[in-house]
Every structure is written in C-alpha cells, then in structure tokens.
Write a protein that binds this DNA or RNA. Structure first.
Lengths: 243, 243
DNA sequence: ACAAAAGTGTTACCGCTACACCCATGA
DNA sequence: TCATGGGTGTAGCGGTAACACTTTTGT
C-alpha cells in the first residue's frame, strides 16, 4: 500500500482491510473483577463505553505494540501483562467500513495505576464485570470471550499474580481465584484457604519474602512473590498446575 | 476503503495493511505427525515450500472463512477441524509490503483426503514434522508455534480424534498422543497403553461402536467414536481432562 | 501352533480433600 | 481480653501409576 502525495490517499491494486486492536484489561480491587473501559469521544457510538483500542498505524512495530500504545494513550496504563486472544473479522462489525480487530487480553494490578482519560476528552473508568454498561460495536462479545479465556487460563497457568503487586499475600491470591472461578459455597477443593495455600506452595515457584503485610485489624499475613525462573524450570520438567 | 473506477485502485485516507491467513494443517499417518505444505508458484520465495494461505478478500465472511477457502483452493482439503491460533504482524515479514497474517491451526484425518495441488500449478504435499524443508517467509515460526499449541491443547482438550476418522481404535489414538507428546521411554503414565485406555474411557465421552477393525495380522481392536454431546455435558459439570 | 498385539484385572502408593487447632494483631 | 482472620497439621479416601495374565487373530 503506497501513499500518493498528489491525492493524499493510500492506494493499492488489492483490497486491504482496516485493522484495529482492542484490549480487555482486567483489574482486581480485592473483591470484584473489573474491566477498564473508555467513553468514546467520536462517532460512531459517541459517548458510549468501549474497549480501549484503535487503528493500527504503519509505524506500530506489531499488533501488540499497537494495543499497548492505544492503551497508554487512552488510559495511561502501561507495562502490564498482555497476550493476544483472538481476531474478530465478521463483515458488519463497524458501520464505517469493514474492520478486522485483533483482541488482546490483559491483567493489571489495579490500584497501582492512576487511570485517567486520554487527550481527546475521553474518560477511562473501571467497571465491575457484574455490572457492565452497554458497549459499542461487538465489544460485549469480546469481553465475554476474554472472561471465558481468563477462566480457562487460570486453571492451568499461574497468571493470577499479574492482578496483584509484586508482593502479595495468600488470602489476596485466594480471593482472586474465588472471584474468577467462583466455586460453590460448599467447595473445599478451591474454596478452602488451607488447601489452596498448600497447592500453591507445592508448585514450588512462589517464594516467601520474609516480610509481612501490616495494618490489618488482625494477624498479619505473609508476603510472597512469584518466581518466574522457578516457574520456567517447573514447566520444563513437565509440572502442570491445575485448579 | 473505496474502489476508484478511474484509477482502478483501492483508496483510503488512512493506512490499511494487507491481511493474509495461513493454516498449519496437521495430519497423522499412524506413525508420524505431518504438516501439509504447498510449493509456491509465484514470487516471492518462488518454488519454496510454504503454508497454505493467502490474501483476505472483501467477500470472505471471516478470517476463518478465508483460511478455509484458501486451503480448499490450494490443496482440495475441506471440512476439517480448525481454530485460530495467533496473528503475526512484525514489520518485515513480507518483502513486498507489510502483511499481517492470521495463523490457523488445523487437524485432519490425513488418509481421508486426496491432496492435490491447486489450479495455478502449485503442488501440495505432506511433510513429517521431523523432516521439514526450508520454509518461505516466517512460516517456520508459525509451524513451531502450532506445534507448541498442539501439545498444550492435547493435554487438556480432546482434539486427538480429529486426526483420525469417525471411528478409531484405542491403539491408534494412543499412537497419536505418543507422537505428539513423545513421553520418555520408561514412562508408564502416558506410555502404557492400559493406563492410557482406562483414563480415556473414564472420561465418559468415548463410546464403543460394537464393531472391530479387521485385517490386522493380530487380534482385532475395538472401534470407538467420540461423543460430542457427552463431552459438552462433562465439560459443563466441570470435568477436566489431563494428560 | 505360534507370534504379535489387544483386551482385562489388580495392587500399592501418593496426593488431595476434608476438617481442627493454634497464633498474631488491633480494638 | 476478645474477636477476627491467618498460619500450621493430619487422617482417610480415591485415583492412578506400575505391573501380569489372558484372548484373539493371521500365518
């Protein structure tokens, strides 16, 4: 696709689709799982809530770079865990023209970021997944897929940590698992804190820091960190997590 | 993006990338895992082997529809299990222009298809994953990712069946698992046929057909089928496979 | 009848579930 | 000192890894 200086248009003998990225950013506040949304400042779907994202540019190094850039520009959130999820490519997703969207799935330690709107008078805000507003485009479907993917992922991959700070307590981590997978009331397999803790520590890649979290009205829980190196090692050996 | 009748070009004020789909099609011959490749008839990388795929057209209903179409056109393979894998979007993947590729991952009962080259003098051929030729573009990376994905997938999802016909024997299925995951020689967990069979049948969604496979020089193994309905049921209950 | 491969059965152990008790902290 | 929540321990059960024997089939 070439830029024509005279006509000020991009031209090609072949059809090229528009490509955007959208990110479903999950955050956890200690109680609920939340999704980061922005309020659209432009048509179409003006003023409606939508996923952070936008059109890919020729100078974006990759789709993921594009997703990160848009997120940073629109919400001031950066340096987070992000992975590609799936593309959305049906014909009438966008009223303007045909758009192919590469959807990403991201996890962030919610309280470590100062979320604000972007430059162009857009607002960014966290919404509980149990109380989402109506969303622009087919973003409802994208969020639904992300939730499903998150549940699948957390069963077998240690990604819950990304929703917390570098140091975290066992009860915090346990709350995340309960919020995402919400086990039945009587379940002791995942629901019981003691069994949960044992299983986690048995995996071998969660290290005690020696420090404790203070300021609680009760006994101070120990602080742990995720040991990436030990995890990679365990993965090589063929060890597999299951919750 | 609009078509200009005068200039015969597609034009847009915004940059649009070219988008292709590529499919990594796995087949199993009873011994080895194979990948379906086509020999390129055009530049770039003329005569080199590559993954079946091609540019997305405005009349393709979705990316997956595009991948299916290209596969059918180039290799005459259709109606197979296919799922989206990941996009590839770095800047210099294609010498012509920047191309974003949506890569798919597919499984097929190899001997049930008459693989032939497409219209434009291209050839299609199966290659053992242990003996792949040099590949065009970054297709080597795409195949590597597909293999990794296949291994991950087969641990927790019953997709091995898609590499076999509607009816299959336990030894056949076992061979697939061994070929994909190749367990160490002394492993009895996955390597032992008796334990493998028990685990599979315990899942509850593999039904005996009552028939047997004849023509072997030895005892005739029973034929089984995969019961999709029972599987969906088991999945709902929260049952999870693990190998 | 024999060889090769598939079907079926059994035991012992490990890990997880289920449950109880003790300890630290702030009010 | 009391209430709340977090840390640690243990018994019993179930599943599965490890292993053996019998049955079928074609030559």
């Amino acid at each position: 696709m070439k830029y024509n200086e005279k006509t000020k248009l991009w031209e090609s003998p072949y059809w090229h689709p528009a490509v955007t990225t959208d990110a479903v950013v999950f955050g956890f506040d200690g109680e609920q799982l939340n999704v980061l949304l922005i309020q659209r400042g432009l048509e179409p779907y003006k003023n409606m809530w939508a996923l952070p994202g936008g059109f890919m540019r020729p100078d974006d190094e990759s789709a993921q770079a594009c997703a990160s850039r848009e997120l940073r520009e629109e919400t001031d959130v950066s340096d987070i865990y992000m992975e590609e999820m799936q593309t959305f490519s049906h014909c009438n997703r966008d009223p303007r023209e045909r758009v192919i969207t590469i959807a990403f799935f991201a996890l962030v330690a919610k309280d470590q970021y100062h979320v604000r709107g972007g430059d162009d008078a857009t607002k960014a805000k966290w919404f509980s997944i149990k109380d989402l507003p109506e969303l622009a485009f087919d973003h409802k479907d994208i969020v639904a897929l992300a939730l499903e993917r998150l549940r699948q992922r957390i069963h077998f991959e240690p990604i819950g940590f990304h929703l917390l700070g570098k140091e975290f307590t066992m009860p915090q981590l346990h709350n995340i698992y309960k919020a995402i997978l919400d086990p039945p009331e009587n379940d002791t397999k995942l629901g019981d804190r003691r069994n949960f803790q044992k299983k986690m520590l048995n995996l071998g890649y969660i290290r005690e820091t020696g420090r404790k979290e203070t300021g609680n009205p009760h006994r101070s829980p120990k602080l742990y960190t995720f040991d990436e190196e030990a995890y990679q090692q365990a993965k090589k050996i063929g060890m597999r997590l299951e919750f």
